[in-house]
Each structure stands twice: as structure tokens, then as C-alpha cells.
């Protein structure tokens, strides 16, 4: 009960801070809608040329890329919000104040990023609805439950990488090779903007080592084609593997990092 109350307090706090920057808040919405519109016109340009690569999804390029755009926000949030929020709390001096309260460390890590995930959820939904209503993206086949399951596993596996990079920030304060590496490789090999089938076979191997590939593949199958749980099993199992390995590892590494910062007395340093 207390944990839930604390989570709500984190959400409220970050919501108030978020809306206190009114112009930035407005621009965020405009840029999301502009991005969807831009890709609609790119899809017109690409036309039928992309279809051979999209056989697997039985859809046009716009629907394919719309799912990529809508959910790539989660990857960025999961990868970056933990480390950037830890850094911000260090700069504000609030991290030490939070750690001085009887609040468990995992709760603090999740708490400082939960608003970002909620906001991303809202923007993803708006993004999908905007694409469906104004540009006729076909979402009628969607298997909602399967999509939610894949999304949850995506958030856990990517958040784990995000928490590991937050642990890095906790100790070295600035400079984050983990985030750089994962986001660069995910952007290129993850299949956000184009299908990974366009790569030569050897490069596709790299794609399959990244959780984003399985996540996007699963989400597209579930949203665009309404695949059943059974049909989605290969991607679900791959994501489950990433979750089981990465999540406990990330919490363990973060606790070690906090201990290290407590030993060096650098919790409040930045």
C-alpha cells in the first residue's frame, strides 16, 4: 500500500513539473503529430517499392512504420529516463534527500521514471489513433492482450538496460557508453523505420541479439495482423529470456552502485 502511495506521489510530482514548462509541453505534442504526418508522406513516396520486404506483415509501409514510431518512444524512455533522471536528481540534490527517507532503492529507481512511461503511453496511443483516424492506418486486427504482454516485456527488458546505465551514472556521474551503444545499435538494427529483412543475412544476426527487434516484430504482428499468443511465441520467449536475465542483474548492479557511492560519499556529487 505504501509503495503504491509512493508511486502516486512520484507521478504527481513529475506531472506538476512537466506541465510547469508549458511551451515545451505544447511542442512535444506538435512534434509527435508532425512525425506521424512526415512518415505518411514518406510512405506515399516509397509506395509499392517496400512491399516485398513487408510480406511478413501483410501491410503497407505506413502502418508498419506507425507501430515503429509509436513504440520507439518506449525504447528511448526505458533506455534514457533512468540515467537522465538520476543525473537530474543528483544535480538538484534531491536524490540524497530521497535516499534519506525510508524508501527502498528499487522503488526510488522506478519512481523517478514512472511518469516518463505514463507520458510515453499516452503519446503512443495518440500516435496510433492519429495515424488510424487521419491516414487510415489499419489497426482493426489488433490482438490487444498480446500487444500489452509484449509491451510489458519490452518495458522490463529495456528498463533493465536503462537501470544498468543509471548505475553507471551513479558512480561516474557523466558519460554513458551503455546507452550510447544500445540506442545506436537499436536505431540501426532494430527495425524501427525499415524491416530488418532489408539487411544481408549476416547483419540480421545482430538484429536478433537486440530485444527491440523481437519487441517490434511481436508488436507489429499483434497489432497489424492480430497474431495469437501461440503464433507470437518465438518473440515472447526471446523477450522473456531478456527479462529474466536483465532485470535481476540490473537491480543488483544498481544496488552495488549505490553502495559504492555511499562508500565514496558521492551520492550527492554530480
Amino acid at each position: 500500500m505504501n509503495a503504491l502511495r509512493k508511486m502516486l506521489a512520484f507521478i504527481k510530482k513529475d506531472f506538476y513539473i512537466h506541465i510547469s514548462y508549458r511551451i515545451a509541453f505544447l511542442f512535444e505534442w506538435i512534434s509527435i503529430l508532425t512525425k506521424v504526418t512526415t512518415f505518411y508522406f514518406i510512405s506515399k513516396l516509397v509506395g509499392q517499392g517496400m512491399l516485398p520486404y513487408l510480406n511478413e506483415y501483410q501491410t503497407g509501409y505506413f502502418s508498419f512504420v506507425l507501430v515503429g514510431i509509436a513504440f520507439s518512444g518506449y525504447f528511448n524512455t526505458a533506455l534514457q529516463s533512468f540515467s537522465s533522471n538520476i543525473r537530474e536528481e543528483q544535480l538538484l540534490g534531491t536524490l540524497e534527500a530521497m535516499l534519506a527517507t525510508p524508501t527502498k532503492i528499487p522503488l526510488i529507481i522506478i519512481g523517478i521514471s514512472i511518469w516518463d512511461f505514463l507520458f510515453t503511453t499516452i503519446t503512443s496511443i495518440i500516435c496510433l489513433l492519429f495515424g488510424a483516424m487521419f491516414f487510415r492506418a489499419d489497426l482493426s486486427q489488433m490482438n490487444l492482450l498480446a500487444s500489452l504482454l509484449i509491451l510489458a516485456m519490452t518495458i522490463i527488458s529495456f528498463s533493465s538496460i536503462g537501470i544498468i546505465s543509471a548505475a553507471f551514472i551513479m558512480v561516474v556521474k557523466k558519460g554513458n557508453p551503455i546507452n550510447w551503444m544500445i540506442s545506436t545499435f537499436s536505431g540501426l538494427f532494430g527495425g524501427v523505420f525499415f524491416p530488418i529483412e532489408m539487411f544481408p543475412k549476416k547483419l540480421q544476426f545482430i538484429s536478433y541479439l537486440l530485444p527491440i527487434t523481437h519487441s517490434l516484430k511481436g508488436l507489429r504482428h499483434a497489432i497489424l495482423q492480430g497474431y495469437s499468443f501461440k503464433m507470437l511465441m518465438p518473440d515472447i520467449m526471446a523477450l522473456l529470456f531478456f527479462c529474466i536475465i536483465l532485470f535481476p542483474l540490473s537491480i543488483w548492479i544498481f544496488k552495488k552502485a549505490v553502495n559504492k557511492a555511499k562508500l565514496t560519499g558521492s551520492l550527492a556529487h554530480y
Binding site: 510530482k13 534531491t94 534527500a97
Partner: peptide, 20 residues
Amino acid sequence: RSFYWRLTLRQNLYFFAALY
């Protein structure tokens, strides 16, 4: 430092009250 500068004193206190 150690408080949220964009929040009011009341909002700051409510947040830390929840953590306590």
C-alpha cells in the same frame, strides 16, 4: 538544493510526506 524548484512548498512537502 534538495527540493524541486518548479514545485510549490506544499507540493514539495506532500511528495516527501509520501516517501515518509
